[in-house]
C-alpha cells in the first residue's frame, strides 16, 4: 500500500492544549498541544518510554483504572473537555475505543467477547445481538474465519485472530475514536498486513490514533505522524512530510536511526 494522498483537512476531533501528565509525582508528558482530525489516521512515534502509551490513554482515561494520575491542561473531544466538561469517563470510553498492545480477549466464547459491549448497554434481543456481532466481526475481517466456531473459547485463537477479535469487540459499541497501542507488535507479518488493511478501511468513519515502533507501518497507514521525545511533542505533520522533509533535526535523526 502506498502512503495516502495529501488529505483534505477534516474537522478537529480531539484537541490537546498545554497538557501535563503525572504518575504521582513523576511528570511523564510535558506541555503537549496538538489537534487530531476526524476520519484520519494519526500515528505516534518515538523512542521507548517517551510517553506514547500514556498520551493515548489520556483520551479514554483508562489509566485511572490502575494508577493515581494527575492531568492538567485541556483535552477536548468535539470541543468538550473530557476531564472537566461533565463527561463521565464511562461514557467517554464507549465513544473512545481502545486496542491494547497485547491482545486481551476475555476468557469467554468468541461470540460473548463481541457481544459484551452491546450487552453492557442494554441490548438483549438475540437477533439484534447476532447482527451486531456479525457486522463487528466482518469489519474486523474475522467473520469468515470464525463464523462456524462462535461458541468456542476466544483464548484458543491465534495471536493475530485474538487481536482482530479485540478490534471487533471495540467496534461493536460503535465508537467514534479508536486508540491502538502497538496493535501489531505481537503479530507476524501476515496478521500485521491484515490489520493494516483494516485500519485503512476503518478510517472511513472513525478517527484512529495509533502508536507504533514500526516506521514503515506508520508511513503505510497514517495520514499524520507525531514524533514524541521525552514526554514532549517534537513535531507533527502530514506523514509524507515527516518522512521526507522533517523540519526538526531530531526527527530526521530518529527516522534515519542516527539517534543517540
Amino acid at each position: 500500500m502506498l502512503s495516502p494522498q495529501t488529505p483534505i483537512t477534516k474537522p478537529v476531533k480531539l484537541s490537546v492544549r498545554d497538557m501535563d501528565f503525572r504518575y504521582g509525582e513523576k511528570k511523564v508528558l510535558d506541555g503537549l498541544s496538538m489537534d487530531i482530525q476526524a476520519e484520519r489516521v494519526t500515528a505516534i512515534i518515538g523512542p521507548s518510554g517517551c510517553g506514547k502509551s500514556t498520551f493515548l490513554k489520556c483520551f479514554n482515561r483508562i489509566h485511572e483504572v490502575s494508577s493515581a494520575v494527575k492531568v492538567t491542561g485541556d483535552i477536548k473531544i468535539d470541543g468538550v473537555d473530557i476531564y472537566r466538561g461533565g463527561i463521565d469517563e464511562v461514557d467517554l470510553r464507549r465513544r473512545v475505543g481502545m486496542v491494547f498492545q497485547k491482545p486481551n480477549p476475555f476468557p469467554k466464547s468468541i461470540y460473548e467477547n463481541v457481544a459484551f459491549g452491546p450487552r453492557l448497554f442494554g441490548v438483549k434481543d438475540r437477533t439484534t445481538l447476532d447482527g451486531l456481532v456479525e457486522s463487528a466481526l466482518r469489519k474486523a475481517a474475522l467473520w469468515e474465519e470464525v463464523k462456524d466456531r462462535l461458541k468456542e473459547s476466544a483464548t484458543g485463537m491465534s495471536g493475530g485472530q485474538q487481536q482482530r477479535l479485540c478490534i471487533a469487540r471495540a467496534l461493536a459499541v460503535n465508537p467514534e475514536v479508536l486508540l491502538m497501542d502497538e496493535p501489531c507488535s505481537a503479530l507476524d507479518p501476515i496478521a500485521t498486513a491484515k490489520i493494516e488493511e483494516l485500519i485503512f478501511e476503518l478510517k472511513e468513519n472513525l478517527t484512529i490514533v495509533i502508536v507504533t515502533h514500526n516506521m514503515q507501518q506508520a508511513a503505510r497507514v497514517s495520514d499524520y505522524t507525531a514524533f514524541f521525545w521525552l514526554g514532549k511533542l517534537i513535531e507533527m505533520d502530514l506523514t509524507e512530510r515527516i518522512f521526507t522533509t522533517p523540519r526538526e533535526r531530531m526527527t530526521e535523526d530518529y527516522l534515519t536511526g542516527r539517534f543517540g
Binding site: 479514554n60 483508562i62 483504572v65 490502575s66 464511562v90 461514557d91 467517554l92 470510553r93 464507549r94 465513544r95 475505543g97 481502545m98 491494547f100 497485547k102 486481551n104 480477549p105 476475555f106 476468557p107 469467554k108 459484551f116 459491549g117 450487552r119 453492557l120 448497554f121 479485540c166 469487540r169 471495540a170 459499541v173
Partner: peptide, 24 residues
C-alpha cells in the same frame, strides 16, 4: 490487569467489569 482494562475500555463500569469479567 488487561482484563479489567479491556472491559472498562469498552465503557463498562468498574462493577460491571468485576461482575461480568473478573468473577467468571
Amino acid at each position: 490487569l488487561s482484563l479489567d482494562e479491556g472491559s472498562q475500555a469498552l465503557g463498562s463500569t468498574r462493577w460491571q467489569a468485576i461482575w461480568h469479567v473478573l468473577i467468571p
